[in-house]
Computed example of a mutant assay.
Amino acid sequence: MEVEVLRDAIFADGAAGFESLAMEVFLFQYQQNRIYRNYADAIGCKVSEVAGLSDIPFLPIRFFKTHTVAATSFEPDVFFESSGTTGAVNSRHLVKDAGLYVRSFTKAFELFYGSAQDYCILGLLPSYLERGHSSLVFMVDQLIRDSRHPRSGFYLHDFNALAQTLKALEKSGQKTLLIGVTYALIDFSEQFPMPLQHTTIMETGGMKGRRRELIRDEVHDLLKQRFEVPVIHSEYGMTELLSQAYSKGAGRFFTPPWMRVVLREEDDPLSVITGPERGVLNIADLANLYSCSFIATDDLGAVYPDGSFEVLGRRDNSDIRGCSLLAL
């Protein structure tokens, strides 16, 4: 399949053809991504024996810290870097076509939440805004512009202005999305608790060492109490991917049709396991066409029969990473 045709097929409605599309993407990336091909060869992958997703090798995410992971040779439209602790080596993701990323996160947002134009979108992402080259900031910035609401925008440290904006939006009955890094949402809720009837609160993870580490349930219970909302939503994404999963409560994430999560054994990187058992998350993101669509993360989790998944923590000795700094 020609790569341009493949791009369109990835975002076609439904997931019935996911396995065949995954095979097409695997073959393209094996041929065009030198790092991925070398890794697959090194672990003894025989392309002729790859028949489906369970046979496809998943590239350890740490390669993004040490190598340029790219399919085909290109000058990137944009590059993204992960956040991390001081002195840590950050991941870098070169994006050949920023439009492909926009298409992925826009379509996924519409699938889960509807059109951005239905919302006033407020971003509380101070640490990401300050460091630059954040895929999360890129996404939220585009959604803010797509919303076309005059009050949509980012907030750094002016909690008073954010509180006044939320109060005005609530008074008018405006449907609002407040998306924020976890520590900033907690800080804001502590200083400005208020009932929010028309606002969806979405946390992206990240305590960043600013506060005592809290498990996700504690964070959500705290925010639900202070904002008097029934649920807290969550976004799961990372620098190395071009797609996101969303949770509308209870910590269960759902993926768009072109993204799938499977488990591997913690002590066997080549194994794939099924069922709601504890394992390490492997993520297939077909939108990540010009990089690597098959990423072996360091996140511990569980995958359920309906395709949803939970994030349960981090592997021992794995790097602390930006969107996963929340202790789960």
Results as ranks from 00 to 15, higher is better:
residue 23 M to P: 04
residue 247 S to D: 02
residue 118 D to H: 13
residue 223 L to Q: 10
residue 7 R to E: 03
residue 292 C to E: 00
residue 68 T to C: 06
residue 34 R to I: 01
residue 229 V to D: 02
residue 317 N to H: 14
residue 184 A to K: 06
residue 74 F to C: 05
residue 75 E to V: 10
residue 110 E to N: 11
residue 94 L to W: 09
residue 198 H to T: 09
residue 235 E to N: 11
residue 172 S to H: 12
residue 289 L to R: 06
residue 95 V to K: 00
residue 5 V to T: 12
residue 241 L to Q: 03
residue 148 R to K: 15
residue 256 P to Y: 05
residue 4 E to C: 04
residue 254 F to Q: 03
residue 140 V to S: 09
residue 188 F to P: 06
residue 177 L to H: 05
residue 144 I to L: 08
residue 162 L to D: 05
residue 70 A to D: 02
residue 38 N to F: 00
residue 187 D to Q: 15
residue 297 T to W: 01
residue 197 Q to N: 12
residue 186 I to Q: 06
residue 279 G to W: 01
residue 162 L to T: 09
residue 227 F to N: 07
residue 213 E to T: 11
residue 314 R to V: 03
residue 144 I to K: 04
residue 21 L to R: 02
residue 273 I to R: 07
residue 91 S to M: 13
residue 184 A to Y: 12
residue 51 A to C: 09
residue 301 G to L: 02
residue 63 F to C: 02
residue 18 F to K: 04
residue 52 G to I: 06
residue 325 L to S: 14
residue 201 I to N: 10
residue 40 A to L: 01
residue 201 I to K: 10
residue 275 G to C: 08
residue 64 F to C: 06
residue 271 S to I: 02
residue 294 F to M: 02
residue 310 E to A: 12
residue 274 T to I: 04
residue 166 L to F: 07
residue 144 I to D: 06
residue 89 V to S: 15
residue 118 D to T: 10
residue 267 D to H: 12
residue 88 A to E: 15
residue 326 L to D: 02
residue 144 I to V: 15
residue 301 G to F: 04
residue 89 V to G: 10
residue 47 V to Q: 01
residue 225 Q to C: 13
residue 35 I to T: 09
residue 16 A to D: 11
residue 141 D to M: 11
residue 179 I to H: 03
residue 199 T to Y: 09
residue 56 I to G: 10
residue 59 L to S: 04
residue 208 K to C: 13
residue 63 F to D: 01
residue 118 D to F: 10
residue 284 A to I: 09
residue 17 G to T: 03
residue 99 G to F: 06
residue 27 L to N: 09
residue 129 L to F: 08
residue 253 F to N: 00
residue 28 F to W: 10
residue 298 D to K: 14
